[in-house]
Design a binder for these strands. Sequence first.
RNA 1: GGGGGAAUGGUGUAAUUGGUAGCACGAGGGAUUCUGAUUCCCUUAGUUCGGGUUCAAGUCCCGGUUCCCCUACCA
Length: 585
Amino acid sequence: MTEAVESRHFIQQIIDADIETGKWGAPGDRSIVTTRFPPEPNGYLHLGHTKAICLSCGIAREYGGRFFLRFDDTNPAKEEQEFVDSIKHDLEWLGATWEGEAKFASDYFDQMYSWAIELIEKGLAYVDDQSVEEIRSGRGNLKDGGQESPFRNRSVEENLGLFARMKAGEFENGSRVLRAKIDMNSPNMNLRDPLIYRIVNAPHHRTGDTWHIYPMYDWAHGLEDSIEGITHSLCTLEFEDHRPLYDWFIEAINQGRNDEDKIHHPQQIEFSRLFLSYTNMSKRFMRQLVEENHVQGWDDPRMITVAGFRRRGYTPESFWKLAEDVGITKFNAMVDFSRLENMVREDLNERAPRRMVVLDPIKLIITNWDEHGDADRVEAMEVPNHPKDESFGSRTINFARELWIEREDFMIDPPKKFFRLGLGREVRLRCGYWVKCHDYKRDSDGNVIEVYCTYDHQTKGGNNPPPESDGQVRKVKGTIHWVNVNDAVDAEVRLFDRLYMAERPGKKTGDHLDDLNPDSLKIVFNAKIEPGLVQKRDDEPNWEDGIRRFQFERTGYFCVDADSTPEKMVFNRTASLRDSWSKQK
RNA sequence: GGGGGAAUGGUGUAAUUGGUAGCACGAGGGAUUCUGAUUCCCUUAGUUCGGGUUCAAGUCCCGGUUCCCCUACCA
C-alpha cells in the first residue's frame, strides 16, 4: 500500500535542506550544486577513489549541477604528468564526465599567494625560521599543548619581506615556512599554527620553476573549492579534524571584508572510506606489489586499481552499482569483496554474449557417428548468443565426430549427484546431440584423455528424443559444453583469483606480503575456443570501451586481453559463474 | 580530565526525524531451466550495554563499552 519512499543519505539530506533554504542561491535552485573530485596526480586511481567519484559526480548529476575535476598539484616533488593523463582516462572510462577543462590547483597559485599576504597584513600569519624538528617539538603532543615559536610575533613588515624573499627563491628547502597564527594550545593539532607555505626548490610539472614556495593542503584545498564555487566539498572521514581549519582560512580571508567582497565559503562534508575485504587500498602497498614484481604492473588484473579492474573486464557500471550498494554513511564498514564480484556478474549476465570454450580439454569421440551418415561429416548447429535475450541473435557452430569437452565434466565412476558424463551415463552436449559414454582411454599417467560415446541421432540440436513405444520420454539431467576438434582454436586464458588470502592483508603479521595468495594467477595455454571468437562478430555488442566481453558458458565471464593477437588470443577471467555444485562437493 | 567521529540480522544499508524495525547481499530450503548460470518463491537472523523521560524510544536525556581518525615543511 505505502509507496516506498526513495531514501536519502545524509549528504543528500543536507543538500536538500540547503536548496530549500536557499543557502547557496535562490531557494529551490538545484543547479547551484557544485562538486569536485580533487586527486593529487601522484598515482593511479583505485577502487577507493571510485566511491568518491561516483558520489560527487552522482550528486551533481542528480541535482542538475556541476562536477569538476581538479588536480591538487601542490607538491611538485611527487607529481607527474603521467598521472594526470591516467586519472583523466580512468574518469572518462568510468563515465564521470567533468564540466569544462580539468582544473589545476597550480592555476590558482597567484591568487593563493595574494591571500596569504592579506593574512600577514592582518597579523594572522608569520614567517617561522625554525627547523622541521623545532616546529615538530614545538607543536606538542596529543596530551600537552605546544609552545609558541620565537618568530611568532614578528612585525608585519618583516614577515612581508621574508615571505617575498621565500617566493623569490632566496632560501633553501626547509629553512622557513609561513604559518597561520591560531592557537598553539588547541586540542585540535591542526590548529596549532598550521603551515601555509613551505619552500620547495623543485620544478613543477606545469609551472616549471616559477615558484619556490608551494601551498600546503589545508591552505590550498578550501581556497581552490572557494574559487571554483564548490558548494559541497565532499571528502573522507579523516579530514573531519581539518574542517575547523578549512573554515578558519576562509573566514580569515573574509575577516574585515564587506559582504560583497567576501569569498565563497563551501561546506566540507565527510563520509566514510570504502574498505573491501581481501584487498588493501594503501598506495604504499600497491606500489610495493608493482615494484617488487608480485604483480605485473599497475594494470595487472589482480590489482584494485581502476586500470587493473578495466583490464580484468570489469565494467564501469559495476562500480556505480557498488557505490550505490554500499551507500554513504560515516561508518567505516568492511564490504565483502564478493559484493563487487556480484555487481559485475549482474551486469555481465545481461550484456555479455555467450560462447563455448573448453579450458581443460579432453577428447570425446562419437563411435557410432557413421551409423547415420558419413563419418567425416560436419553438422551445423544453431546456438543462441544469449539464453534470455533474443536480440543477441544466434550463431552456427560445427558439430562432428570428435569434440573437446571439459576434463571435469567426466568421471569414470561418478557419485549419484554428478549431473555430467560418466561411464554408462548420458548427457546433452549443448545445442548438439545427446551422448552416452561406453568407454574411455587413459594415458600412461592414468589421466583420462579420450572418452568414447554413442550419440542419439534423434536428439539433434540437443532436443529431447521422441517418446519411446511405452510413451515415456527419456530424460537427461546434465548439459555440458563442447568445441569441435577440427575447427577449435587454441587460446591462452588467464584465471585470476584474489591477490590476498586474508580478509585484512597484513593484519596478522604486519606484512601484507605474508598474506599473498600464491595461486592468484593460473594460466591455461591450450584452451579450446570457438573459431568465431577470434574476430569480432557483427552481432557482438559494441562495448563503449572497446573491450570484448563474453560469458563462456558454465565457466565464467571473460574479456579479450590487450595482449591478444589474431594468431594468439588471450582472455582474462573477469569472474567465475556462481557455482553451487562446487560448494556441494 | 587531550580532541574529533562512529555503533541497527553474518555483511552493507533504511526507518516519513518520538509511532508496525524495512531492503539488498549471504546462508538454508523449494520451483523453473538445453549453463549446477539466470529467474521465481519461502525461511533465517538485528537496534553496543546500563539507567532515565514518555501512552510510545533505534530515534530524546544521563552514564558506560568498543572501534576509527588526529602529534608530515604529504594530500
